[in-house]
């Protein structure tokens, strides 16, 4: 725990989060969320994903606006590079989730953040997705995340912050653990 003279403000409302934790522990059905995305093929490997709403707290919610994400493959894959590749979007999702966690945990622990930068690398042998080597998996063989954090905390406290953000991260869990996926044709 870091002591500061000025109140810590990382822009995270921890009181609301702690209140939600308490309230949802008593009402587990409200804690059941469903997140949604739709994706439309444009042309070639280019697609546009749209994110509008989700369900939770016993009701449907709309985002304040519709978010869209372009995805494509780069030119060296004989594509037009009209968007990030889907695997890069996965890296972005992991980075955003961990970074949000760093901010929330820092707020809770009284650590004032000045800057946080996550740099991610995911290794992939593309012989897998090309179907050229059955022993190579399609996905990342490894992901490395490097955090550069400037904050009023000791190196040990910062390391603990980053460790705790991994422990509570949805995307870190999604990436590190198996998830049952069903795909059907409408």
């Amino acid at each position: 725990m870091t002591m500061t003279d000025t109140p810590v403000d990382n822009g995270v409302n921890t009181e609301a989060l702690l209140g939600a934790r308490e309230a949802l522990s008593e009402a587990p059905e409200a804690a059941a969320f469903t997140w949604r995305a739709t994706c439309s093929w444009v042309h070639g490997t280019h697609s546009t994903s749209t994110i509008e709403g989700f369900s939770g707290l016993g009701t449907d919610h709309q985002h304040k606006k519709t978010f869209t994400f372009e995805a494509d493959h780069p030119e060296c894959f004989a594509s037009q590079d009209l968007g990030a590749t889907p695997v890069e979007i996965v890296l972005a999702g992991l980075a955003s989730c961990l970074t949000a966690g760093v901010a929330a945990v820092a707020q809770h622990r009284g650590i004032q953040l000045r800057s946080v930068t996550a740099t991610l690398e995911g290794d992939m042998n593309v012989l897998g997705i090309l179907g050229a080597d059955p022993d190579v998996r399609n996905g990342f063989s490894a992901i490395r995340v490097r955090f550069d954090i400037d904050a009023n905390a000791s190196p040990d406290d910062i390391e603990a912050l980053v460790a705790q953000s991994q422990k509570r991260s949805a995307v870190f869990d999604i990436v590190t653990n198996p998830t049952a996926v069903t795909v059907e044709v409408a």
């Binding site: 390391e159 460790a163 705790q164 991994q166 422990k167 870190f172 869990d173 990436v175 590190t176 653990n177």
Partner: peptide
């Protein structure tokens, strides 16, 4: 097995 072993060790 989870790929989070490194973090559980760090914690």
């Amino acid at each position: 097995f989870s790929g989070s072993l490194a973090n559980t060790c760090t914690l």
